[in-house]
Amino acid sequence: MVETHFPELDATVPPPPRRGILSTASLYKLAIYIILIVAAFIAMVPFGYVVSTSLKSTMSLFAYPPDWLPDEPTLDNYRNLIDRYPFWRWLMNSAIVAGSVTLIKLVVDSMAGYAFAKMRFPGKEPLFLLVLISLMVPFAALLIPTFIIVRELGLLNTYWGLILPGLASPIGIFMMRQFIESLPSDLENAARLDGCSEFQIYRRVILPLIKPGLVVLGVFTFMTQWTSYLWPLVAATKPQMATLTVGARSLTSDFTQDWGLNSAAAVLSMLPMILVFIFLQRYFIAGSIAGALKE
């Protein structure tokens, strides 16, 4: 694997000189951390409240004013969710759809990105302009035509039906082109002279070198798919094809809202995403730097 450690990540600005007992430097540090902790608190609190609610018993949910923390934490809501609803099935569906879209997009977009970044061919500029313009198309607007196409292909309520429309998004092509363009051309030239075909250059030189970029695109795509709601809602009408987002939403009927159950579903559906992100976080930042978005 390519070394993607960026020492600058931990670099800091030299502190101003000491003055008195409480130096300006440590006051400055203190302010920095107070700001960060407040911001982290705001980012976390709603989520923490959901976790807390998911651990409350049905009874304590109706306490008013509500408690910040459950008196007697219970896993009942989680048990309920797993016993009464096809939760694992939803999770699997989401994993299959998000995983497939991510894998296919990484291959397909990096190939197209390579062509746009490094190859010479007629029609390159107009085609890339088309990609840029299509970034502006709102997906919700294409819902009906996409629905009709998928229905005509007989793919409603299938995994392919959920996966294929997700592959159309052009943002990955754009991101990959930016990444690959920043690689020195002499590398592929050297590979060309070493007897590589264009596909071998892509496979053996380009791909290993844009790993940070692939992580960024991968996390981004997986995230978008995992959180996607509108398309699975219309394309998967059968309960056994529902993804997590659709399933979690179905817990809320028009008449009742079981806050505890909803919260448990929310916690469980976010957990995989959070784990993926924490694991890849360092590469993600490094990748964003490497691809430092240029005009």
Binding site: M1, V2, P184, D186, N189, R192, L193, G195, V205, L209
Partner: peptide, 20 residues
């Protein structure tokens, strides 16, 4: 003729070694 089929080798200014 494709670069790889010309039977030439090149040393680049920045060496162009494969970093990985």
């Amino acid at each position: 003729v494709k670069p790889g089929d010309r039977n030439v080798a090149m040393v680049f200014q920045n060496y162009a070694l494969y970093p990985h």
